[in-house]
Amino acid sequence: MMQKNMKTNLYQSNPFHLVKPSPWPMYLVFGLFGFLLNLTMMMHNITDNYMMLLINVITLIYIGLLWSRDIMGEATYLGEHTSKVSEGLNMGFLLFLMTELMWFFGMFWAYFYSALTPSVEIGEIWPPMSIMPMQATDLPLFNTLMLLMSGATMTYSHHALMARNRFNSMFGLFLTMLLGFLFIICQYFEYYYCSYTLADSVYGSVFFMLTGLHGMHVMTGTLLLCLNFYRLYNYQLTSEKHTGFNTSILLWHFLDVAWLFVYIVCYYWGV
């Protein structure tokens, strides 16, 4: 397979990556379908079997890793990612970030729709009469500071990579991963000790939807950082060419900025 690919590259007269058939998109779609089905069934109390959901999550992560492994092979060992292909990947990732931006925009819209003209059912005040909003200067502030620090360590790692400093780059990336994990753990405790749930009026719904959306993205972002750490460790990223690293960094910074607005709106000024 590798030999065949190398020969193709020798005779290919265009810089584009003509992808080979891959099973991962189809597997991923089946995995997502199962995940969605089990999640919906659990939410509607049709089943209370958490194991199925866990298996779904593991399957999804596993398929993601296999797909990433293929892409890493194509990029590093088969040399399929030419400058032109990298340009396309960057463009694709920026378009993906645009959809993310619109998703967050939609969620903020939902928040303001409920908050600016609170309905009669919640006492026409925001936050609703029965809701005790979270203390902004408590754990959320700690979380915010952690994300801010992770942005700094991420930039430090990126700078070190471009300056050809392997140890500093790996150290910075490791710190970023650690801060990401800590953020997820703190968010878990925040949810655990929260006095309201997803089902407690529209406030609970929009609050958990916004913070949960961000939390899920942080989990994905941390996974991406782990992949990048693996690649850095294996000398797959160079100081000149590290498209995957660049896009992961961009996602991380995007999430930081999204959290800034979530923090201002959901914890500080919006309650």
Binding site: S83, E87, N90, L94, A152, M162, H242, H253, D256
Partner: peptide, 17 residues
């Protein structure tokens, strides 16, 4: 990043933080 200018992107990330 779209222009493939990682150095400028890094500098902008500094400003972002």
């Amino acid at each position: 990043i779209r222009q493939n200018n990682a150095r400028l992107a890094n500098r902008m990330f500094y400003w972002r933080v």
